[in-house]
Amino acid sequence: MKILRKDKLDGVFEKIRANGFDIFAPVENEGNSRYAKIERADEISFDMILPKGTLKEIFFPRSECLLRYKIAKRKVDVEEADTPNDKRVIFGVRPCDAAGVGIDDAVFSWDYRDDSWFARRNNTIVISIACVKSDDFCMCTSVGSSPDDKRASDVMLYPLADESGWSIEEITDKGREIISSVNDLIEEAASEVALAELASVPVRFEIDKVTSWLNNRENFDSKFWDEISQRCIGCGVCTYLCPTCHCFDIQDEGDVYSGVRRRNWDSCSFALFTLHTSGHNPRATQASRWRQRIMHKFNYYPEKFNLISCTGCGRCTRYCPVDMGITETLERINMFEQ
């Protein structure tokens, strides 16, 4: 059993950094917690349930440059943005966040392979810590995830009962490599060391019943959608803080002579998202937009990729300004099927 002690973390980070990696970890910054670059282990916030920002931001930033263009008299110069090549280790990732990235691999490699997503994926090592704490909003166990979901994690750390460190489970080759690169700082425990109990997250609905209700075409026009989304104000909090929401918009910034083409997050909650040039909007109401969000995650994505596009992190409910969220919607649907 391999053990990483907390007091060895700075040494571990130093070695990893010497190999050309930047270290990222969940940090608290005046109420705006996220996975951010750190220098020292004491910057890491181990206490929070989850940061507000998700791991997807590391691979799919909220705004990124795709290309630069210059328009001259008879020619257009296009310069593509460099493929990202920063080597990163993300330490202390919540398993639901890592799983979200794994789920998004499917869409980013479907009809085209997204270079910048996979360049970052290949250059990044994800070291997750299994959850020993949860809050009222966590619901990973309801959507087929768990406090130690291993999807897209290269290493999973299990907290020791005495809180002095973690037991190491190497999951991928990348994970094995990074652990072997810091081998002299890793302890080999002769006997079994007691592990902390993992968070016990209650199952809030039966996902099969929910997906079968959603799959019934008759329910597409159910009055339920109007009722459940009445108080939705149509902001992008739930989508932008979601570990799997991946919709984006392409925007040119500049003038007629030169500019930058950028990829920005976009949200199906916004009325503009589906507004046609003609003025027609096929999703004219907030109810139809909320239905789309639920259907995408629990019907269309599973149909296409055999994956539920939700890891149960609970951020959509936790940070919703009007106290909505996926959990309540699915709990209600679950009740219809009882």
């Binding site: 992008g236 909090v237 910034e253 916004f270």
Partner: peptide
């Protein structure tokens, strides 16, 4: 740019907010 501030504001009732106009683009969307 989740626009929660705008959506939660009773005074931000415009059907089309200036950030959503792109002919011309007044405000940078990024």
């Amino acid at each position: 740019k989740c626009y929660a501030c705008r959506q939660a504001c009773p005074m931000c009732y415009c059907n089309r907010c200036i950030v959503e106009c792109n002919q011309p683009q007044w405000i940078c969307r990024s």
